[in-house]
């Protein structure tokens, strides 16, 4: 066993020391030059990505909220519009109906009035025609009579005629 390890330090201690120096130097240099900046940059980027994802999620939620709100607003507006339209239609129908009835009533009234008027006019006109006919008849009768009774004889004849008819009973 002693022979086995004989001279091991003489021949190999140097290698162990050299590699220890080399490895520790590598460790220190890489830590300073590479690992700290690289791991820092990676975790920085991870944080950035995480926060970006979180804010994207927030934006998505906000978007969904806004969309929902818009939709409900739109729905409400639609309902309101329908309501207004319905009311307007009812109002229109009512107005039309009212107008119709009032027009009918007015028409009937006017027709009635016109009838009365016409009747009155007719009566007046008829009365006037009657009067004029009467006057004309009187005038005609007067003229005829006057013509008849211009001649004395005829008057005599008429009187005698009349007298003839009148029989004294």
């Amino acid at each position: 066993m002693g022979e086995l390890f004989e001279g091991i330090l003489n021949h190999h201690l140097g290698f162990v020391v050299w590699s220890a120096v080399a490895f520790l130097l590598l460790l220190v240099m890489l830590k300073k030059l590479a690992w700290t900046p690289i791991l820092g940059a990676i975790s920085e980027r991870e944080r950035f990505i995480e926060s970006a994802l979180a804010s994207a999620e927030n934006a998505k939620n906000e978007m969904a909220r806004l969309t929902n709100e818009n939709e409900s607003l739109l729905k409400q507006a639609r309902v309101e519009r329908d309501l207004i339209l319905k009311e307007a239609k009812e109002l229109k129908d009512k107005i039309v109906a009212e107008a119709r009835t009032s027009a009918q009533v007015e028409g009937t009234k006017m027709i009635e009035k016109a009838k009365h008027e016409i009747d009155a006019q007719k009566v007046t006109a008829l009365n006037e025609v009657k009067n004029q006919v009467a006057e004309l008849s009187i005038q005609i009768a007067e003229k005829i009579l006057r013509k008849q009774f211009e001649d004395q004889q005829k008057q005599q004849a008429l009187v005698s005629d009349l007298l003839k008819d009148v029989k004294l009973n």
Partner: peptide, 18 residues
Amino acid sequence: ASSHVYDFSITKNVASTW
């Protein structure tokens, strides 16, 4: 004498490590 000599040579493995 050999037991007093320590070999700190830049051997193939040391150079390869570098």
